[in-house]
Design a protein around this nucleic acid. Structure first.
Lengths: 235, 235
DNA sequence: CCAGGCAGCGTTGCATACATGTATACGCTG
DNA sequence: CAGCGTATACATGTATGCAACGCTGCCTGG
């Protein structure tokens, strides 16, 4: 668990923000596992900065729901359970559904071009087993384009709060080939509704898409954590 | 603009948390108006503490969406416009609707007692013109009970983000007698659906209630900011 | 007279030092 | 030997000092 000391290539960026970015990345990628204790002095030494910006970074990550902070106790990477997984996906379904409804009436030609390109790349990627991370990125790009097109900073931030958690990142990594194809078809269907400027339909499809993803993730989690019961049921 | 220096009666509470509470209260009550500059040293002097906990408090308020923070610039109380008003209410309608749906299946007898008592007090208060702040508090208590019954820390926090803003506090202050009666009937209707454990109906009614509140607030805002056009239209 | 630059001041951002609270481990006592 | 109180070490919480950035006003050149 060691970070690059100073890769803040962004000019003029505040030290605390750079630290928050590094830590966020480390948490989302799983480099810092759930429950990992984040001592301030330790982090400060590793990043070659003082505790002050570290504290600020930890506060930001706390408000993003990525780390737990109790008084007079070291911060720790937040851990998620099945309930969190269900809750996060449900909220995401509602919020992104809302975003899709609004976006349907605001998407520009440039946006549609991006979405079409994303779907094309997604279609090519979903066939193969390789480059799963790339597929995940493509998926997020599709969703992000729609969310940002809704044009609400607040909505974007809220959706980030329920999307940018390691659990959801990992969920996509477990998709089977069939799952990937289904997700791809969902994206095509959403794009279709958006192109028709059919706001209600776009909302419905987006909501269904994310709720489907939720159920896939929950089922996978059940298989992993309770294989005996799952096997018995499927028999 | 001067605060009580130290009214942190809560034992063992962190200074920064107490500062955040004081500032939050001052902003929500309007004591600190929108756009008010919040210099760190100035606040530190007024509260009799150092800049460090002040900075932490400002960060918390920033993540709550109550203050704006730009790099190397003093923080300021965030200002809201009509779009914010619409957006906040819309999100609130969605999220609290969701909360009502979940709460419908989880509310305890104690919760129902609280809600009934709230409705009773609301019914008595809504007739008179006095004690509008008390009516506002009663309203928030009703909503808070339902939201907390949903049992999701995350959902509660998100709803707080779109509820605890000065704009929404002020909105309720402008209600006419007729508006107050309508709101009361809405609450009764929501409670009815909850008591019947009718989750979809509870969600629908809660959503409609808040969207109605949004339209009332927007109409009032239009009357205030653009009286000429409004008068011409009503003629 | 106006525009551009430059210097002074005040602010935030970061680093460091000190105070305070908690967890652990040891020794004491029943 | 078990349980408890205390002491100590180490973490966080707060205060302060220093450096860097932005703003303001004046001055100078065109």
């Amino acid at each position: 668990m060691s970070f690059s000391v100073d890769q803040s290539a962004v000019l003029g960026e505040k030290t605390s923000v750079a630290a928050a970015r590094l830590l966020r990345q480390a948490i989302l990628s799983g480099e810092l596992p759930a429950g990992q204790v984040l001592g301030e002095e330790s982090l400060a030494r590793q990043l070659g900065i003082s505790r002050t910006p570290i504290r600020e970074a930890l506060l930001r990550l706390h408000s993003d729901g990525l780390v737990e902070m109790l008084p007079n106790r070291p911060a720790a990477v937040r851990s998620f359970d099945g309930n969190d997984l269900r809750e996060l996906h449900s909220l995401r379904a509602i919020l992104e559904g809302h975003a899709a409804r609004i976006a349907a009436e605001r998407l520009t030609d440039a946006d549609f071009t991006k979405l079409q390109a994303s779907c094309r790349r997604y279609g090519e990627l979903q066939k193969e087993d390789t480059d799963l991370p790339k597929l995940v990125d493509e998926n997020f790009a599709f969703h992000r384009t729609i969310v940002e097109a809704a044009g609400s900073e607040r909505l974007t931030a809220m959706i980030r709060q329920v999307s940018a958690v390691p659990l959801i990142y990992k969920s996509y990594m477990t998709y089977s080939a069939e799952n990937r194809t289904t997700a791809w078809k969902h994206h095509l269907g959403i794009l279709e509704a958006l192109e028709a400027r059919d706001a209600p339909e776009a909302e419905t499809r987006m909501k269904a898409h994310i709720e489907w993803a939720r159920d896939v993730a929950l089922e996978h989690l059940r298989l992993v954590t309770d294989p005996a019961t799952a096997a018995a049921e499927s028999a």
